[in-house]
Design a binder for these strands. Structure first.
Lengths: 196, 196
DNA sequence: GAAAAGACTGTCAGTACTTACTGTCATCAA
DNA sequence: TTGATGACAGTAAGTACTGACAGTCTTTTC
């Protein structure tokens, strides 16, 4: 990331996000953050007042909160494999954009970060609804057998949630396995399992 | 957990494990840990010398490291649904036994916890091997079609890893969905998808 | 075009609080 | 007597945060 043209506030927010995601809120000092941003500690406090407010500002600034429904409203074509691919890639895109925020939510407990976790959980919940309804509709169209649409949807999302989580830390558990083939595999698996 | 009959060391180790898993290493003080254990802070240091050594001792004491291969050596019966159920339940059992350790590994970065992460990742890696070989053998027996055994295995594990992670924080993303039906669903899904 | 004003930043010294960790001595049970 | 513990006081280091002052750069004003 080229920070040379950014304002001081943005430099600080980015540095805070990176460092807190990596070492946790209590694991980073305000001096570290300021230094990483190429600024003095004093400037940090002039901009944000407290360390807490800095974190909150970073969360507000870099949290992506599009309405999931819009993302799918007109893009579904009612072909199972095509649509599942859309869902998968969209899911991973959004999760990756919110990667740092998710890491922070994982590390810190809710007491100190009011509302952070609910915000990071918003997307997955919306997606579950959408996918459940999709399976119901596809079943009504006779294109799949959906004995338990919500559980199907949940299972599909858990697969991708697991893969995303596994990918989160650079210290990967399963080296040599990349995301793209996995996405393909997950879709074929569902396509074959739900075929009427 | 009834701690009344335990020795002081064990009380401290347990308290440390609980609190660090909940609030992170830097989020808990030695005084908190000692108080939670019903002992004085002094006793904590008499037993473990430093806070770091306390955490390391807790990890050593409560980390379950059975050889996965033994768990499956004679239990597989070469019926897909039966065996997948065994794999799933064993996986969740082990992950749940190591729950606190996994939470700690997630919160703390590797720099401060030498070797912790590799230990928590040992089980998943072993399981991937076992399951891959299982799919290869089942394919050779003509009982399933395994176009890409390792990717099948990876996908199956990611499903359950995702479900486990989702279950980790009490602040669940998906209330109302419990583990048992999900396990059942995941197995049926694979059974139908891999049927020759 | 020069001067003045204002916005932003760095340096440095310092405060107040927390916290890991120690030393001493008394207590108490086996 | 011995071994484990608690109460208490205290040290040393780290850290969030403040105040005072000076420097630089841009913008405004004459």
């Amino acid at each position: 990331m080229d920070t040379s043209k950014m304002g001081s506030s943005d430099k600080l927010l980015l540095a805070a996000l990176h460092l807190i995601a990596e070492k946790g809120y209590n694991g980073v000092t305000t001096l570290e953050i300021a230094t990483a941003a190429g600024l003095s500690e004093k400037t940090l406090f002039r901009h944000f007042g407290t360390k807490q407010k800095l974190l909150e500002a970073a969360f507000d600034r870099y949290h992506y909160a599009e309405e999931m429904k819009k993302l799918f409203a007109e893009k579904l074509v009612w072909d199972l494999e095509t649509d599942l691919l859309l869902v998968s890639t969209t899911y991973h895109e959004i999760m990756n954009r919110n990667r740092k925020m998710i890491q922070i939510s994982l590390k810190e407990d809710e007491g100190q970060l009011p509302g952070f976790r609910t915000r990071t959980q918003k997307h997955p919940q919306q997606l579950l609804e959408i996918l459940t309804n999709y399976f119901i509709d596809m079943s009504a169209k006779g294109k799949i057998v959906a004995t338990n649409p919500e559980l199907h949807a949940f299972t599909f999302i858990m697969m991708h949630f697991g893969a995303f989580m596994n990918d989160l830390d650079s210290q990967k558990s399963y080296p040599g396995i990349t995301l793209a083939p996995f996405v393909q595999e997950s879709i074929q698996l569902f396509a074959r399992a739900l075929r009427p």
